[in-house]
Simulated assay, not measured.
Amino acid sequence: MRACVQHASRSGCCGNKTGANDPEIALPTSLAPEANHLLASLPAVDKARLFPHLELVQLPLGHVLYESGSQMRHVHFPTDAIISLLYVMEDGASAEIAVVGNDGIVGVSLFMGGETTPSRAVVQSAGHVYQLPGQVLKDEFLRAGPMQHLLLRYTQALLTQMAQTAVCNRHHSLDQQLCRWLLLSLDRRHSSELIITQELIASMLGVRREGVTEAAGNLQKADLIKYRRGHITVLDRAGLEARTCECYAVVRKEYDRLLPEVRFP
């Protein structure tokens, strides 16, 4: 697959828009449309119909894909980017309700008929997404074919993640929450390293920065992670799984059940 890479800013995307089959620039496998597991699992005939409408966009850390209540015009399929869905309070406080990576799609409200959502979508880990016009996806959804069934199952899995996140934030320690968050993020990356600040982690978890500092320090003392300014490297994934609460396993099991064709590490 070949495509043009656009660079995004908070005010929108710039650069020439080209489809995923454009012959201008050869892409590595990690940036092909099939790097997103939902797109990869579609039958060939559906890919042939959708892929010409895809546009590859490069997103920086902290970029806002959509704000609360804004009209959605596109959906996004991440390849190597990770997107956090946040609920933002009137006083500016926020907390993550779900994370989306190469396992899914950002913008489920559009094909579910809502068009808007009270959440905000923020880039948690810089990378690339494939942007698709909302009307193209709606037309494909209404075909009632493989894409519709895939998106409905994905939405159910996403709702499970949202519900489990709420339970986890209420009942489990910050150490456990951080372990869950790290594991969910690792599942959606091809690397053991995350480039993210403590301030952003605190915003995701809805806690004070000092709490994140303490929790990250506890995990580093246990030789589970290595933390330096803006970088977290996971040293012992099995150790994180042993230390986290049951919430991660519940979410992972539901994704595996509903989306067996979507590959996780």
Rank of each mutant, 00 (worst) to 15 (best):
N169T: 05
H172I: 02
G114C: 04
L56P: 05
Y248M: 05
D187E: 08
H171R: 11
A166T: 04
D80C: 06
Q156M: 01
S109N: 08
A48P: 11
S9H: 08
G217H: 13
R180S: 05
N218D: 09
G69R: 04
T160Y: 12
A35K: 00
E199P: 04
N169H: 06
Q135K: 02
M89K: 09
V88E: 15
E261P: 02
R170Y: 01
M72D: 08
P118D: 01
P265R: 10
L219V: 01
I201F: 15
A81D: 07
L224T: 10
V108T: 11
M112A: 09
V64S: 05
G92V: 15
H37C: 06
T18V: 14
A44C: 04
L152K: 12
G12L: 09
K221I: 02
A202R: 14
P133C: 13
A222Y: 03
K253F: 01
Q148R: 14
V250T: 09
S41H: 02
E67V: 01
L200S: 12
Y227R: 14
E254W: 06
E115A: 07
V234D: 09
T244L: 04
T18F: 09
V100K: 08
V207S: 12
A157C: 10
K253E: 13
H149Y: 14
Q164D: 07
R10E: 04
A8V: 01
M204S: 05
G239H: 04
G104S: 05
K226Y: 14
L258N: 10
